[in-house]
């Protein structure tokens, strides 16, 4: 299956791109995707542990199983307000 990945703030700086498309095995979890992203973008590796994920614009725990066509956002610690 294929998922779209969005990077924000320091994660985008480290990835060097703001979006990516990742081919990953069916039923992969957010955690598995993050592990893949760390291999694809080594500079992301040390910021990913602090990042939360959103699947289709809602926070999703790392155990969430992904489905084809979903959009996963990599969200560094937020600092709005």
């Amino acid at each position: 299956m294929r998922v779209r990945v969005l990077f924000f703030a320091v994660a985008r700086d480290r990835a060097g791109v703001s979006t990516d498309t990742v081919e990953i095995e069916d039923g992969a979890t957010v955690a598995a995707l993050f592990a893949r992203l760390a291999v694809m973008h080594p500079a992301l590796k040390d910021v990913l542990p602090a990042c939360r994920a959103a699947v289709d614009e809602a926070f999703a725990p790392h155990a969430t199983q992904l489905a084809d066509g979903q959009t996963v956002a990599v969200l560094p610690p937020v600092s709005g307000g």
Partner: peptide, 28 residues
């Protein structure tokens, strides 16, 4: 305002005279 600081996906970047950086925020 307290919950905005915890769970709205927004990031602040500060520029200083000697560089700029993302502000470390709340990680959940």
């Amino acid at each position: 305002i307290d919950e905005i600081k915890r769970s709205v996906p927004i990031w602040k970047r500060e520029r200083f005279t000697d560089g700029e950086e993302w502000v470390e925020g709340y990680d959940g």
